[in-house]
Amino acid sequence: MFQLYLFIFLSVLALWSASMVLITKNPVHSVLYLTLTFFTLAGHYILLNAQFLAVVHVIVYAGAIMVLFLFTVMLLNLNKTGQFSKSTITKWMAVIAGGLLFVVLVASVKTTDLVININPNLSQSGLVKNLGNVLFTEYLLPFELSSVLFLSAMVGAVMLGDKHKK
């Protein structure tokens, strides 16, 4: 029962901070709320006993990506120039469209019957040892290819960020 309360608390906090990302006007506050969202999502991973994913999520998202976002916000000096927004009617239409999407997603899942055969030896899959076994045997090729992806992303980012090149 305690886990259920924890799940509800984390979910409400995540949804609230995700909404605040959109509601708040200041881009720096928006980035900080997104960081809070990512920490609550890390809590969700821990609740699912996916320890490896929780650690990687904190390092990659809350560590690297959020620092990159904050760095960009401060580099672009958005506090002065970032004050533009769409018209009120567009905002309401967007919220209604998003709400309808949510309703359709939930309704479509509700009509399907989810057959989950819960294994007796549940949720050992998220442990580092088991994930490592699968990663370095079954998914070795995608793992190596992701290093090539990172190299190309790094080269691309440096090339795009180069000031003197036109």
């Binding site: 006993n49 490896f52 294994n119 949720s123 990172f150």
Partner: peptide, 22 residues
């Protein structure tokens, strides 16, 4: 992935994180 005790889903999450970072 956790409910079905299958590691593949969590590895997909790992790869999605890799691609998202790039």
């Amino acid at each position: 992935s956790a409910y079905r005790n299958d590691s593949s889903g969590q590895l997909f999450v790992f790869f999605i994180m890799v691609v998202a970072a790039a």
